[in-house]
Design a protein around this nucleic acid. Structure first.
Lengths: 213, 213
DNA sequence: TGCAAATGTGAGGACTCATCACATTTTAAT
DNA sequence: ATTAAAATGTGATGAGTCCTCACATTTGCA
């Protein structure tokens, strides 16, 4: 990744649309652009994705692409943002009504399985979160996402262990969540059998940490 | 990163020198190239590092650079390889004579501290392991490194718990190690105070997992 | 000394991201 | 319906990058 400009200019923290599409026509075009980008990322990865190809597949000109996305990273960011929004809603729902250790075990275990399957099945998601470390805006998005998800977990923990130090709970939840992402990334980069073992081991470690022994 | 060629061609798994320097003269020049690259990465990160600038700072021509390194990634890889070799030796030494739980606690805790300080102090190391996910060769190097380090840990665990399932020990050690790298990366990307908390929490979790309750 | 192998050079090829002056379509007010 | 302003669309072109290659120089050695 990284053309000349992005490398020289200070990497913008947030890559927002250069101009929000207000007409129906342009909203549809933006959708087509994102769909094209998604396809290309799935096929070749976001590094190999070429802006010209995105435009061509979306049936628009290069100029139109840059009218709604300030640069290449912004397209990837927009896709990532959708994934996080969707998954956050899912996680919040799963943890909403958990109020005892048994329920937490079930809900957490279920969530890990869902995530694992998602990582295995979604090449776009995989690519985006793999490249996460190289791009500042993406890194911040992932961090914010992780903090938000950890917060859901903290809410549950506070119910289960009202006497515990809140700061310690935050730290634990944040760490457990980030380690989950590590375990997923790791699991999909080795063969399936070892991947399954790693995910299972993570689940055990995390639960031991969350519900105590 | 990623110029046209590297993106199109199948990413080579191993980025080996195009031609090994046999004369004293060229060996010194290669050292200067690596030193220049190291400086530039520390200053601006490996993405922003420009091949022309590396050549200029090393006092050689672009052509000479490409005589010993097949492409840009190979330079970063060479630096990464040095770091891993050095740290593996350090880790092996620290764990070599550990044969009881108390000693493991001490040695592991010490190792984590050393790594944490290293991450805080070495911008090059930080940059390289951050970009790790985007580059196949680097990802594989890190994976191999992690497996090797986990192996040292497994050797210790087998001494402490001779009856345990070897495969389970492998999985645990590998996961614990990878999570350590996650914790480090995370710790240096937040403020110092939270970073310290995260590292401490990781240490506690890891030890609980390694030496049992 | 002579000659092959190793080493050194940098202008230029190939390709990329992103811009901008200009054309077209939509919206909305008269 | 007319018309002006706003939104949208276009693609040749600029700027910048990685890397190659034909050719020059230096070194090791018989």
């Amino acid at each position: 990744m990284e053309g000349k400009v992005a490398a020289k200019a200070e990497q913008a923290a947030i890559a927002s649309p250069r101009r929000a599409p207000t007409q129906q026509r342009s909203r549809e075009r933006v959708e087509r652009m994102l769909a094209a980008a998604s396809t290309l990322i799935a096929e070749q990865g976001s590094d190999a994705m070429r802006m010209g190809e995105v435009a061509e597949r979306a049936g628009v000109s290069i100029g139109s692409l840059y009218q709604f996305f300030p640069d290449k990273r912004a397209i990837v960011w927009a896709l990532a943002e959708r994934y996080t929004a969707e998954s956050q809603a899912c996680i919040a729902a799963a943890l909403k009504d958990v109020s005892d250790a048994e329920a937490l075990k079930r809900a957490f275990s279920e969530l890990v399985d869902i995530y694992y399957r998602l990582f295995l099945a979604e090449p776009v998601m995989r690519d985006i979160w793999s490249g996460t470390q190289a791009d500042k805006a993406l890194r911040e998005l992932e961090l914010a996402d992780s903090r938000a998800n950890a917060e859901f977990l903290v809410a549950v923990l506070k119910r289960l262990r009202p006497r515990a130090d809140p700061v310690a709970l935050e730290t634990t939840a944040f760490l457990v969540w980030q380690m989950g992402e590590t375990a997923m990334r790791l699991a999909i980069s080795v063969d399936r059998e070892e991947g399954d073992r790693l995910v299972a081991a993570y689940k055990r470690m995390a639960l031991r940490e969350l519900v105590g022994e």
